[in-house]
């Protein structure tokens, strides 16, 4: 199953975990499953406050996944 990687600073919202294994054939599928685990973070993803990368590439909801893919959640908050 694909793995969702969560920034250390946000892991408190997922019970201290920094990665979750979740089912899904697309990014949208995995994010649906993620919403059940971390609704607040899922809302931030939907609102654009957190971007999703599959491997090192920015991903869209329809991006297809293979079982060994890793999704990285990258907050957009920046200074300057």
């Amino acid at each position: 199953m694909p793995i969702v990687r969560i920034p250390n600073v946000l892991s408190g919202q997922v019970g201290g975990r920094v990665c979750l294994e979740l089912p899904g054939a697309t990014v949208a599928d995995v994010l649906d499953a993620f919403a059940a685990e971390a609704p607040e973070l899922a809302r931030a993803v939907a609102g654009g406050g957190i971007r999703v990368f599959v491997g090192e590439r920015a991903a869209a909801p329809e991006t297809a996944l293979s079982p060994d893919d890793e999704l990285f959640l990258v907050p957009s908050l920046a200074g300057g």
């Binding site: 990687r5 250390n8 600073v9 892991s11 408190g12 201290g16 920094v18 990665c19 971007r51 990368f53 491997g55 090192e56 590439r57 920015a58 990285f72 990258v74 957009s76």
Partner: peptide, 21 residues
């Protein structure tokens, strides 16, 4: 964001945890 992921993927396992900055 892409830069951050590049660095993230290269962090050692010990750097991944709730209390680590």
């Amino acid at each position: 964001g892409a830069l951050a992921v590049i660095y993230w993927r290269r962090l050692p396992e010990a750097a991944l945890g709730a209390g680590v900055m």
